[in-house]
Amino acid sequence: MTADDSYGRLDDDDFPAYTTGRAADMLGTTQGFLRAIGEARLITPLRSAGGHRRYSRYQLRIAARARELVDRGTPIEAACRIVILEDQLEEAQRINTEHRPTTGPAEPTAAA
């Protein structure tokens, strides 16, 4: 990938643009916290060619939500599970909305 290719992907929420140190700074947390939520399988950072963890903006949003819960006293494992379930619910609602008919009767009609 060239520098031009990388620059074009910076708007991509899934592009792993942030190192562990930078991600921790942005979230106001420690690198250990990021490793812990990785071990809990909340997020799986991609690895650079040198083996260093890289995080996307989407992963940072997920990590930030987990941090909010942990800061409120939720154990890290529970916080990770809550965030996973919230993410799954959001995805299911999105899919449901996409498949919901936009026209038609509000209630099914009963055959007389």
Rank of each mutant, 00 (worst) to 15 (best):
L60W: 05
D12W: 01
R81Q: 12
I62W: 00
D12K: 00
A111T: 12
P75A: 09
R57W: 05
A24E: 11
R35V: 12
P45F: 01
A111Y: 08
E86K: 00
G32H: 08
T44W: 01
F15Q: 07
Q93M: 10
D13G: 08
A79M: 00
T74P: 13
R65H: 09
R54I: 05
G38M: 03
R57P: 12
A110S: 13
I76H: 06
T19W: 02
G104C: 10
A63F: 03
E86M: 07
A64R: 05
L60P: 11
D71R: 01
Y58Q: 12
I62M: 07
E107V: 04
T103Y: 04
P75M: 05
D87E: 13
A23K: 02
P101I: 01
E68K: 00
A92T: 09
G8L: 11
D14H: 04
L85Y: 01
E86V: 01
R35I: 10
F33A: 11
R53A: 12
E39D: 15
I84T: 11
A112W: 09
R72P: 15
D87I: 00
D11M: 06
A49S: 14
H52Y: 11
D4A: 11
I82R: 00
T30W: 01
G51A: 08
Q31W: 00
R100I: 05
R67E: 15
R61W: 05
A110P: 13
R9I: 04
G104Q: 03
P16T: 03
I95S: 06
I84R: 03
R54Q: 14
I43E: 12
R22N: 13
H52V: 07
Y58W: 08
T102D: 15
T2R: 04
P108M: 09
T19H: 07
T103C: 11
E107H: 07
M26S: 11
A49N: 12
R57G: 14
Q31I: 06
M26V: 06
R54V: 05
S48V: 05
G21Y: 08
C80F: 01
D13P: 15
R53E: 14
R72L: 11
G38Y: 01
L34P: 14
A78Y: 02
A79G: 11
L60D: 11
A112K: 04
R100E: 15
T74C: 11
I62S: 02
D71V: 02
T97V: 06
D87S: 06
S6L: 12
P16A: 10
A112S: 14
A106H: 07
A49W: 02
Q93R: 06
A78D: 15
I76D: 14
R9F: 09
D5C: 10
N96E: 13
D11H: 04
L60R: 01
A92Y: 04
A106W: 03
R67S: 14
D87G: 06
T19V: 03
P101E: 11
G104I: 01
E98S: 10
P45V: 02
Q59I: 00
Q59A: 07
Q88E: 14
S56W: 00
R65W: 02
A17I: 02
D71Q: 08
R9V: 04
A24C: 10
A40W: 03
G51P: 15
D71N: 09
D14A: 08
F15K: 04
E91N: 04
L46S: 15
A106D: 15
H52E: 14
G50S: 14
D12E: 12
T103D: 15
R47A: 14
M1Y: 09
E90H: 03
